[in-house]
């Protein structure tokens, strides 16, 4: 995006002859301040999700009613919630569920969206028309509403959340892939493959797919940001990750009823955690976008 000051994608003349296009992108990513900042934030939360529970001072699920709603202190850095659980420990470990569900949903969206996009872009015609209209119809409804209906119908579980978000995002990725495929299929190498009587499957997945990877990668990183947004929102609404998980959205929804009483520490740190993760992913996505497009 032109808004950022990243030096991403600047040509590297001395190396241009030796590196392939993917390596080129990789090295320009390493020079992008936006990307590295975002990546740093995301890696921090991934580390918390993986190893956090070994380092936190308290068990994130252990209650301690006597010390309930204690303000931040040396003992409890971020205070305690309404049943005395340590907020700091919960915030650190709370990254785990959202960082499992959101990437899996994004992966599902990418796989389904890429397949649909290749299919519609390659065959065009009536198949494309029908599938595209259906996908447009799905895109017209807000994700929250789709998710709400699906979860009412299917019940709440992590799998439901992954499937719902994955399938709601698939049409958006399909649209991006489709427009890239429409341009690719006019090129000579596709004609050559068709003249060799390669199967449609081979042409789509072996010939065209590797050439449309850049837009797919960009769209996937952008979608990951939205997936985190959606998972957090659904958890906050009570339709996502379920108790007793220390998930951030869930913690906010169970504690925000009391902020009128001044217990700000029970929600602020979870809110800031979501904010940093979402902004981190979006900065990284912005860097990836810049690296592929400049």
């Amino acid at each position: 995006m032109s808004a950022t000051d990243s030096p991403a994608g600047m040509p590297a003349p001395d190396n241009a002859g030796r590196r392939g296009p993917m390596a080129e992108v990789f090295f320009s990513l390493l020079r992008s301040g936006t990307f590295l900042t975002g990546l740093g934030i995301v890696l921090f939360w991934i580390a918390c999700a993986l190893f956090g529970e070994h380092f936190v001072p308290y068990d994130p699920l252990a209650d301690d009613i006597i010390n309930a709603l204690a303000p931040p202190s040396a003992e409890h850095w971020f205070g305690t919630d309404q049943i005395g659980r340590d907020v700091f420990s919960r915030v650190i470990v709370g990254s785990r569920d959202i960082l499992t569900v959101a990437p899996l949903a994004t992966l599902l969206a990418t796989v389904a969206g890429t397949a649909l996009g290749l299919f519609t872009g390659y065959f065009r015609g009536i198949v494309d028309d029908i599938i595209s209209r259906i996908l447009e119809a799905f895109m017209a409804i807000p994700v929250v509403i789709v998710a709400l209906l699906a979860i009412v119908a299917l019940g709440t579980s992590k799998t439901t959340v992954i499937v719902v978000i994955g399938l709601s995002f698939a049409p958006i990725i399909a649209r991006t892939v489709r427009s890239a495929v429409l341009a690719e299929r006019e090129l000579d190498y596709v004609a050559a493959a068709q003249l060799r009587h390669e199967s449609a499957f081979h042409t789509m997945f072996v010939e065209i797919l590797p050439n449309v990877i850049p837009p797919i990668l960009v769209e996937t990183t952008v979608r990951l940001g939205y997936a985190i947004f959606a998972v957090a929102t659904l958890s906050f609404m009570g339709f996502g990750i379920q108790p007793p998980s220390p998930d951030w959205g869930l913690s906010i929804s169970s504690n925000y009823g009391m902020i009128g009483g001044g217990f700000w520490w029970t929600v602020l740190f979870d809110a800031l955690a979501i904010a940093t993760l979402v902004i981190g992913v979006n900065l990284a996505a912005d860097g990836v976008h810049g690296a592929f497009n400049d």
């Binding site: 995006m1 808004a3 950022t4 000051d5 940001g225 947004f229 957090a232 929102t233 906050f236 959205g249 906010i252 925000y256 902020i259 009128g260 001044g262 700000w264 929600v267 602020l268 809110a271 800031l272 979501i274 904010a275 979402v278 902004i279 979006n282 912005d286």
Partner: peptide, 29 residues
């Protein structure tokens, strides 16, 4: 331009309940 663009981008990507909570804390509490 950078402030408006980056600031706009940052607040746009945040879930509404997150900005909502932070705003409630600042202006309400």
């Amino acid at each position: 331009d950078r402030i408006i663009s980056l600031g706009g981008l940052s607040v746009t990507v945040l879930p509404e309940f997150v900005t909502g909570i932070i705003l409630i804390l600042i202006f309400g509490v």
